[in-house]
């Protein structure tokens, strides 16, 4: 486990030092500023607009960070052969993978926390009221990012960065459409198509579970049982993915 911690720490450091975070943070601040400009145009709905844009922007940016940085994180180690020196230490490959996952998730979560703090601050200053309810949406977003990070790590355990980014993006899109898939499959398609779509439906992460943005902006709190459910679902889903990814990575040949 100490190996996992060391790798995670190193991954956090790597991502943070890649200035990517700085760019994203600036972008986040810019986004909030832009929504400030838009709010007078919103006919009295400025507060909702700022909150919506802030939440959507931070979740989008964190997802982007995870997909873009995550898809090359493992490959870069193999390509530059930095992994050789590390894997000659008493650490399992699956522990290495878990450390990468934790580091990336922690970084994404920290980024989300920072951006939500900006949203809270901007709304408080501009409208005199702190929308504490968005913290519920933040917790769910952090869980969602855990699942997305696991998806990225899973694909990167056996394929190239470009394909990882592609597959991860496809899975995220499909994960938002999971319930429609079933609907399409049931609309008079051949039985095997219906069965295949049903199988995909069951395997896909149902990301709508983690989306409470539409509720919190309208003052509806995230119920604790919803949070607990999402946490259980998200953690189990990402563990399943990581176990499979670890098994694949253990068997993979390094070049």
């Amino acid at each position: 486990m100490r190996g996992v911690v060391a790798i995670a720490q190193n991954t956090v450091r790597e991502v943070i030092r890649q200035r990517m975070v700085l760019v994203l943070a600036l972008f986040g601040v810019g986004l909030v500023a832009a929504s400030q400009v838009l709010s007078p145009l919103a006919l009295g709905e400025g507060r909702k607009v700022v909150t919506d844009f802030g939440l959507a922007g931070s979740s989008l940016l964190a997802t982007l960070l995870v997909v873009v940085l995550g898809s090359s994180l493992l490959h870069k180690e193999l390509e530059r052969r930095t992994i050789y020196a590390v894997m000659a230490k008493p650490i399992r490959r699956s522990e290495f993978l878990l450390g990468k996952f934790c580091g990336l998730w922690i970084t994404a979560a920290a980024l989300i926390a920072g951006m939500f703090a900006i949203v809270l601050g901007v709304v408080t200053v501009s409208y005199g009221e702190t929308p504490w309810l968005v913290l519920g949406a933040m917790a769910l977003t952090v869980l969602e990012l855990g699942v997305i990070t696991a998806i990225v790590v899973f694909f990167s355990s056996f394929t190239t960065p470009a394909l990882t980014a592609f597959f991860a993006a496809a899975t995220i899109v499909a994960g938002n459409f999971a319930d429609d898939l079933l609907y399409f499959g049931s609309q008079g398609a051949a039985p095997w198509v219906a069965r295949a779509t049903e199988a995909v439906y069951w395997m896909l992460p149902h990301l709508t579970v983690f989306n409470a943005r539409g509720a919190v902006v309208h003052g509806i709190a995230v119920a604790p049982e919803r949070l607990a459910f999402a946490a259980a679902y998200g953690l189990l889903y990402l563990m399943a993915l990581l176990i499979v990814a670890g098994a694949i990575f253990e068997r993979r040949e390094f070049r």
Binding site: L41, D52, F53, L55, A56, S59, L60, D180, R213
Partner: peptide, 21 residues
């Protein structure tokens, strides 16, 4: 709504701003 990939309220805001414009 599905096509906004979970960002439907922000998309609604954009449509709202466009409508007012």
């Amino acid at each position: 709504r599905q096509a906004t990939l979970g960002y439907e309220t922000a998309a609604a805001d954009l449509a709202w701003l466009r409508g007012i414009q």
